[in-house]
């Protein structure tokens, strides 16, 4: 089976070198925002939005519309047409034609007076989405989680203490968000403990966010040092990784 094509050249320059330079210059353009807002940053930002939209459209067309709609629709089209029996086409392709037509209605938004047509596919998607997600989400995200919380707390040494901590955390955090009772007496203490659990959770979230953002910077620096700089003859003795 063929794999993606190898290197081709533009004006004698390999395309992968051109790609490296475009990526490096756009990286530097984006990081120029750290000094202050500027036209170079704005250009890179707008380019990213445009390229992303075009890339998305091309991928959806080639990997979804063509194999799922265009090819199955066009297959077996000629014979019934030659036989003068278009009704046979409509009948045999109904499962493709109906969703295809429904999809086309979304473009009604572009025509004044026909915007209402786009409500039908939106209503279909919303109805289907709600029907699929509500029962499944309740099962997976609420019932399974409740089941996961109901764990034995004794003996404390065999994971029981972890389970106890989990139960205390869930109950106290729920108490903090329970507003039908005034937060006085026992409720006050429960909600106060709940705040501590929330704060620890936010702290863990912030720590992970720092790690993620630094990772992105590390990725760009690694690219500039070991992929881009060698194209201008600066070799820093790369890490030799695959």
């Amino acid at each position: 089976m063929p794999e993606p094509s190898g290197i081709t050249e533009i004006l004698g320059i390999p395309t992968d070198i051109i790609g490296l330079w475009v990526a490096a210059l756009l990286t530097l353009a984006i990081y120029s925002f750290l000094y202050g807002d500027n036209p170079v940053y704005k250009f890179a930002e707008h380019l990213f939005v445009g390229v992303s939209a075009a890339y998305g459209a091309a991928i959806v067309y080639h990997q979804a519309l063509v194999p799922k709609l265009v090819q199955p629709l066009s297959a077996g089209l000629i014979q019934p047409l030659l036989a003068g029996n278009p009704a046979a086409i409509v009948w045999s392709k109904a499962t493709l034609l109906i969703p295809g037509m429904l999809g086309l209605l979304i473009f009604g938004r572009f025509f004044r007076g026909y915007q209402w047509l786009s409500r039908w596919p939106i209503a279909f998607v919303m109805g289907l989405g709600a029907g699929l997600s509500i029962p499944r989400s309740i099962q997976s995200l609420i019932l399974e989680q409740m089941h996961g919380t109901m764990q034995p707390v004794w003996p404390l040494t065999g994971g029981g203490f972890d389970n106890l901590l989990l139960i205390v955390g869930v109950v106290c955090t729920l108490a903090y968000f329970y507003f039908s009772l005034p937060h006085r007496g026992v409720m006050r203490w429960l909600s106060r403990i709940g705040i501590w659990f929330l704060m620890i959770g936010f702290g863990a979230g912030f720590g992970n966010t720092v790690m993620a953002r630094i990772s992105l910077l590390i990725g760009r620096i690694e690219f500039l040092l070991y992929e881009w700089l060698p194209t201008i003859g600066i070799h820093l003795g790369g890490p030799g990784i695959g």
Binding site: V210, M211, I214, S215, L217, I218, G219, I221, E222, P239, G240, I241, G242
Partner: peptide, 20 residues
């Protein structure tokens, strides 16, 4: 047992974390 970007990046990650 594969040398990759993850291990190399973790040194930078740790220094940046200490700084933060």
């Amino acid at each position: 047992g594969r040398k990759g970007f993850g291990k190399l990046g973790m040194a930078s990650q740790s220094v940046a974390h200490l700084l933060i």
